[in-house]
């Protein structure tokens, strides 16, 4: 059903991603789909890495650690952005095409009233891509 699953990863907030990562790995095993982890970094030093190269390095290591036992070694893809907070949606939509993904699995927060002004990234991406999008919400508790 699915051939390539794209998973946007924010290395600074891995705790919040755990559920989505598990879902993605399960789906990848179930459909025998390849996994691609996508990360966005900046030229400036960030909490995760002090240079873009260090970020690449960490994302590779992350991809290796989060390889599902489906026989597919996951790939990783890094994008550089000058303003990741606002560019993120556009970058991820572009990444879906670049990666050739037919399913996106990503974490999102519970809906709030503020979403009307600043929609969550997942919702915006679903609106702008033809791929299926699986938004994984945290447990309500």
């Amino acid at each position: 059903m699915f051939n390539k699953i794209m998973v946007p990863v924010d290395l600074a907030h891995l705790g919040a991603l755990e559920k989505a990562l598990t879902v993605a790995a399960d789906l990848s095993r179930h459909y025998g789909a390849a996994l691609c982890y996508v990360g966005v970094t900046t030229s400036q030093p960030s909490a995760v890495a002090r240079t873009p190269e260090e970020y690449e390095h960490k994302l590779r290591a992350f991809a290796h650690e989060h390889a599902p036992d489906s026989g597919h070694e996951p790939t990783a893809r890094v994008y550089n952005s000058h303003d990741p907070v606002t560019d993120l949606d556009d970058i991820l939509v572009r990444a879906i095409d670049d990666v050739g993904a037919d399913l996106v699995v990503m974490a999102t927060h519970l809906p709030t009233h503020l979403d009307a002004i600043m929609p969550p990234n997942g919702a915006k991406i679903a609106k702008h891509t033809e791929a299926s999008v699986f938004l994984v919400r945290p447990d309500a508790s």
């Binding site: 873009p52 690449e56 290591a61 790939t75 994008y79």
Partner: peptide, 16 residues
């Protein structure tokens, strides 16, 4: 960071 294993992962780098 695991340098030895990490470099085995195919990496597509864009704009970095």
């Amino acid at each position: 960071i695991k340098p030895e294993t990490a470099s085995e992962i195919p990496l597509e780098s864009v704009g970095v």
